[in-house]
Design a protein around this nucleic acid. Structure first.
Lengths: 187, 187
DNA sequence: GTCTATACAGTGATAGAC
DNA sequence: GTCTATCACTGTATAGAC
């Protein structure tokens, strides 16, 4: 009996291995152990091996954020979209117990292959948030500042939470950032 | 002709390799290539191998921050110490072109051996900053919030700068954080 | 499609010549 | 103290049985 039958289904499992051990630390033995899929089958799903796995995992994450964060910010009523962003972020990162794989890969310059994907993820996030803030009436310069501050703050909160082992620190960080945005929107 | 003769002198070079490639990616061949020291000599300096190297590198970084940031925050006139912290941070991280190795190691849970050192680094930073803010007249709860926000913001700014390739983003992040602290101190 | 068997390079680590 | 030679092992990757 196997729980996984489609390549798409393996991505979340493989993603967790990359998250826990980083790119170099995510070895085939750890991936087979976690997924229950042998090396041979993994190469059947991902003919180009580890690099292809990582690329698909990144694309998977990107699609999630595109659907749950970036697109709402660009399309929905801005205040509601921002509120939705905070909910999505707390949910996705398990209230600080889960780190950002894109951030992890960003810190590792071993493989420039992913540089564009990583850069695009953060730039689109900042841009979408900025434009939502502008649509909500915030000045362009201030909106850019706030958006950079929020996206950077989220990453930093994840690092500190993971480092100290206190997930609550991430939740506090998000609350502070949300409050600052609210102040700006109502003030 | 060799430029390095003492173990202490090798640490900054080895640290850069860990910074660029992460713990797993920092292989002996890369370290020997960067330092010009053979494996045999590296094991002479660090009998316990890579793990000992990483431990010494972390201790080296910790000592630098202790001397240039934490101790000044605890001892000097608080406003001046905070200003010194921003200078030290911009300087140490090369205005956003260099990442935080402690942050990189924090994201990697391969080796719990360093967990305490990593945790201590961030906790002492937050605590020292908080106490300096308290000595400068900020309320305890607000000081704790601000300190967490600053240390997390620095880490996040480094991640975003590295990801986007725009070091200037880190400088802006630091400026924003410094302005917020200044507001609190004068307001 | 899934697996086992295997190739081959590179890993951390050790021994020993000088 | 510094290096080279070598170790056992694990890494990614491939071939091929079923």
């Amino acid at each position: 009996m196997r729980a996984v039958f489609e390549r798409q289904d393996t991505l979340p499992l493989i993603a967790e291995v990359f998250r826990e051990f980083g790119y170099e630390g995510a070895t085939f033995s750890r991936i087979t152990e976690r997924t229950g899929i042998s090396k041979g089958s993994l190469y059947h799903f991902f003919p180009d091996g580890k690099e292809e796995m990582a690329a698909h995992v990144l694309a998977h994450i990107d699609a999630w954020f595109e659907a749950h964060v970036f697109t709402p910010l660009a399309r929905d009523e801005p205040r509601e979209a921002v509120a939705q962003m905070w909910r999505a972020v707390l949910d996705y990162f398990h209230s600080g117990r889960r780190i950002c794989l894109v951030g992890v890969f960003a810190m590792d310059e071993t493989r420039d292959v992913f540089a564009d994907a990583i850069k695009g993820y953060f730039q689109r996030w900042i841009k979408a948030l900025k434009q939502a803030l502008v649509r909500a009436g915030v000045g362009r310069a201030r909106a850019q500042d706030l958006a950079e501050e929020c996206v950077a703050g989220i990453q930093g909160g994840l690092v500190i939470s993971r480092a100290t082992g206190e997930a609550a620190q991430f939740v506090r960080t998000v609350r502070r950032l949300a409050a600052r945005v609210d102040d700006e929107l109502s003030g």
